[in-house]
């Protein structure tokens, strides 16, 4: 599974992007499950809420499916996935 996250906006207005391939990772099952939950919560629970000025905006793509979300209205799973991919991804 390929997970790509682009973070835009923020006070600085500086874009950040990271991508991660779960293939061959020892934590692949965990990360894939997290990604599924992060996307599912956006699609099904209507987390598509209005962002705030200077709040970070995120684009999360998982195997070609893309969702958008924004601080401070992220689900727990989205927050965790974003933190993980921006830290571990390249």
């Amino acid at each position: 599974m390929r997970i790509a996250i682009t973070r835009t906006g923020g006070f600085a207005g500086i874009e950040r992007r990271a991508e991660l391939d779960t293939t061959g990772r020892p934590d692949a099952t965990h990360v894939q499950a997290l990604a599924h939950r992060a996307l599912a919560s956006a699609a099904e629970e209507g987390t598509a809420v209005t962002g705030v000025p200077d709040g970070f905006r995120y684009e999360i793509s998982v195997d070609g499916r893309t969702i958008h979300c924004a601080d401070p209205h992220l689900t727990h799973e989205q927050r965790e996935l974003i933190r993980f991919v921006l830290k571990e991804g390249a």
Partner: peptide, 10 residues
């Protein structure tokens, strides 16, 4: 394969 629309879309 449709995006979920959110704040980023004006």
């Amino acid at each position: 394969m449709h995006p979920v629309f959110c704040t980023i879309v004006p």
